[in-house]
Write a protein that binds this DNA or RNA. Structure first.
Lengths: 341, 341
DNA sequence: TTGAAAGCGCTAACAT
DNA sequence: ATGTTAGCGCTTTCAA
């Protein structure tokens, strides 16, 4: 029923090898034959079966992406960056979410391999032993975004979380704040969650105003931000500034402050991290640490495709495996303000 | 280098047909042989090549999804709904964005077909002639989400946009508002954009208070909402309520009002559409029309998989092709309020 | 129950 | 420059 290269060959009165040649421009073909073949292809609307092609060539032009949660804008913007670059370079994307479950992740890495993906982009916050093994066996290019990875041959695209948090905290210190709380990520988030906390702590320790009682744990959700803020406000010594490990919690804290008739930023400065869209939109708008989500995706896929294509040439340079640290920057908006010392 | 069914057969001392049989439980195999084969598979970590399998079986367990924009939360939540169901049913997803460009869309529909997807989910706002042809030729199950489609055999999953907009407007009318503006979608959005406007208009016309000067066009972005609101505020007779065709514009309008020291909802009621996350989070929180994004995705993929699998059985029932209208509901929050008549 | 062999649709080495 | 043919790795008739 579906038309194949054989019928094209027959109708054009040539061998299928010739058809294949004109299809791929892989070898010179006599102009009149080429015309005839092209003609038949046109007429029949023939399109080569990519599966068969892939099987024969060991190339599918498909790339796999594994991500914890597709509905989280932070991730979907990275995906969007990956996707547009991928599309521009004539690859296709297979995408799966893991719901933060490592066994799901492993299962789908294998599934993708079976399906012939030529490379893999991974967004994970935790690389454990078992995962390491699977990745080690993978035999095709892999890039990670965000979390570190100690495996050779797996470059990571990231930002300098610690430095960024340090700068954000330093900014609050420069605004004369002495009691600066942090709603940090969960302790189990050993990567960015921890680095952002360490940056915060470093700045405060350097200024001699670190107070561990002002550090609270939140699970990155709006509700956690809101609730943690409630606790903070119920305490005896209310902070004058709060640094949150992500914008979503920052907005939770912000709304909580507003609901409690606290004036932000007059009475309380709030600083987020990520610079998601809502930061710009909120009233008051939220100061934050901008990180380039789309660019993260783009750099990752660009690097991956480079690895894939130079692997064929064997021209791969050493620097292709190096980690890349993308630039962050502080975005100052309405939610933070200098106070009198 | 990669291990194949042949090596398994050799190592287990059987034919590859037998290996295939134990792999798929397709035919009875002597228990001792099965054990031996399983053993070898285990030892070698063998996993069958899905490409080869797909070529032979004409089945890939891959589904294609085409969507205008991956970074838009409205879409990514639908995708998330699709993905989790897909994953639970052991299919994989190939996803591509179109940037609202129909030729890109067509190109990737064909690409997906070449790559052997077994079904297609389409999110489009516009089905033109050319697209219709391509879809008609597709020969595999297709589902559309959102926009209508006049093609037989292509079920649509949607909400009743007109009714929803009607109810939202009616709600504002019941709050005693007489001057109710609308920031509608672009005129080029012939589907939901238009239906939402029609619902709004119908309610106002029925109450005899429709005024076309109060209808403004916006392109669904925060900036458009903000800017349009600026114009509205500059006008001579400022409306007391505004219905926006989506939440993003509503928040734009809301922030503009706030920036101009207008009290929402005391002086101005604002109602959005979609009930995206920000609606709940904003201060004041935004009244809106809730629509079930994740459920849209799930219903679509559930239906699609049903079509795919019953197509094999030829057991497909008529109702499998029927459109489905999902429930919306009004969510009343802080941004709308009754006024004195 | 098992194995041999044909076939899925394409590419590429080898011959001509 | 073109055709013949042997794979790519798997499933599935068909015979035994």
């Amino acid at each position: 029923m579906k038309i194949t290269i054989n019928e094209i060959a027959k109708k054009a009165g040539v061998s299928k090898a010739t058809v294949s040649r004109v299809l791929n421009n892989s070898k010179p073909v006599n102009e009149s034959l080429r015309k005839r073949v092209l003609q038949v292809i046109e007429e029949t609307n023939f399109r080569p079966n990519a599966l068969a092609r892939g099987l024969s060539l060991q190339k599918t032009r498909v790339i796999g992406v594994i991500i914890p949660d597709l509905s989280n804008p932070v991730f979907s913007r990275i995906i969007a960056g990956i996707e547009s670059y991928t599309r521009a370079h004539d690859y296709s994307l297979m995408i799966t979410a893991t719901d933060y479950d490592i066994s799901t992740e492993i299962k789908h890495i294998n599934l993708f391999r079976d399906k012939g993906v030529e490379g893999l982009i991974l967004l994970t916050d935790d690389v454990n032993q078992k995962l390491s093994e699977v990745l080690g066996d993978f035999s095709k290019p892999i890039i990670m975004i965000g979390s570190d990875c100690d495996l050779e041959k797996i470059p990571v695209i990231k930002i300098d979380n610690m430095k960024a948090a340090y700068e954000a905290t330093q900014y609050l210190i420069n605004l004369n704040h002495k009691r600066i709380a942090m709603i940090r990520g969960p302790l189990t988030d050993r990567f960015s969650g921890n680095l952002r906390f360490e940056g915060y702590k470093k700045a405060l320790v350097e200024s001699g105003i670190y107070d561990e009682n002002l550090v609270k744990e939140g699970k990155y959700s709006f509700e956690h931000g809101y609730q943690t803020m409630t606790h903070l406000l119920a305490g005896s010594k209310i902070p004058t500034a709060i640094f949150c490990a992500n914008d979503v919690m920052a907005v939770g804290a912000l709304k909580c402050a507003l609901d409690n008739d606290l004036n932000v930023p007059e009475e309380l400065s709030i600083m987020g991290f990520d610079d998601i869209e809502i930061a710009k939109i909120y009233t008051p708008s939220l100061s934050s640490v901008h990180q380039p989500f789309e660019a993260k995706g783009e750099r990752a896929i660009a690097k991956l495709i480079h690895m894939i294509e130079s692997e064929a040439d064997e021209t791969i340079s050493e620097c292709a495996f190096e980690d890349e640290v993308l630039e962050h920057r502080l975005i100052i908006r309405q939610s933070t303000k200098r106070i009198k010392s």
